[in-house]
Amino acid sequence: MQIQLNGEARTLEAEASVAQLVESLGLAGRRIAVEVNEEIVPRSAHGETRLSDGDRVEIVHAIGGG
């Protein structure tokens, strides 16, 4: 299936949870926040939240700004 990840198309080989996607990106344990289809997915729900074809996923972090 295909998702939009941070604005770019990405193909996932199998069905995946948000936690599995985060893990596959090497971001497990990092200070990030995840949104799927413009809804926050709380950290506590990453494991149980399944991704679907066409989902728009945003993964953000903190950067310098004023």
Binding site: G7, L25, R31, V60, I63
Partner: peptide, 20 residues
């Protein structure tokens, strides 16, 4: 202290320092 929220660079070095 203020900071901005931006898309994470995917494929970055997982050990890279983080602003936080």
């Amino acid at each position: 202290v203020t900071f901005a929220v931006r898309r994470t660079n995917l494929g970055q070095d997982a050990a890279a320092p983080n602003l936080l």
